[in-house]
Design a protein around this nucleic acid. Structure first.
Lengths: 110, 110
DNA sequence: ATTTTATATTGCAATATTACGATATAAAAC
DNA sequence: GTTTTATATCGTAATATTGCAATATAAAAT
């Protein structure tokens, strides 16, 4: 036990969970917000922006990249990261679904 | 080490991370999708809908409730859970921010 | 009052995550 | 070619999460 039983859920549910999980850490939220703020891929200064050691930041970047929320390419000595649109598109579908539901929802029993 | 350094990030970043973390498990996505499907709070059958033991489901429901994504009230023997709008509203603000950014974004360097 | 039914809590083992020092890698600058 | 600079990987300790059996709770039905 301890391991998530991914095979018991749909691909869709697992995909969404992986994306949400990647967003589930303040450092990773901070990274995404910073990437949006600077709006450029020449970003070799993410480490300086965060209150964490370099290996930790590197690890968080890797997780965001694995989840498909950012993309990065080698740019000389630096690595160039930026927001990856398709990753967010998937979460948006889910949220649009929820928003639609909440708009239509009439039951108020709780 | 091992514990997230929440005090190094903004309240906003921590709040968002907590919400996203709560969404970061396929069972909890499944619960939310089921609650939307049935669109009613008379839901004493969540356990039967999931491929997990009763204590595990109870634990996931608790986490969703703590995060503010669902709400529940006692309804006789059963407990009545449903989607909690304010919780989702917070995440939506973040996503609208991202959507706006992606729409305006012009840099295509990666 | 006892039994049934639905849910919560406790305790614990298995696994995952977080964080960072030490070290590796690899291109740029000298 | 050595040094610098930027990032990644490895190893590992601390902590968190996941899952469930066992047990507790508490209202409903008998």
């Amino acid at each position: 036990m301890g391991a998530t039983k991914t095979d018991h859920f749909t691909d869709h549910q697992n995909e969404l969970a992986i994306l949400a999980k990647a967003l589930g850490h303040p450092a990773r939220i901070a990274i995404l917000e910073y990437l949006m703020k600077v709006d450029t891929c020449i970003c070799g200064d993410i480490v300086n922006e965060l209150p964490l050691a370099q290996p930790t930041v590197s690890q968080h970047l890797k997780e965001l990249k694995n989840a498909g929320l950012i993309k990065g390419s080698i740019e000389g000595t630096a690595i160039c990261y930026c927001i990856n649109e398709p990753g967010f598109a998937k979460i948006e579908v889910f949220f649009n679904h929820i928003t639609q539901y909440l708009d239509k929802k009439k039951n108020e029993c709780c």
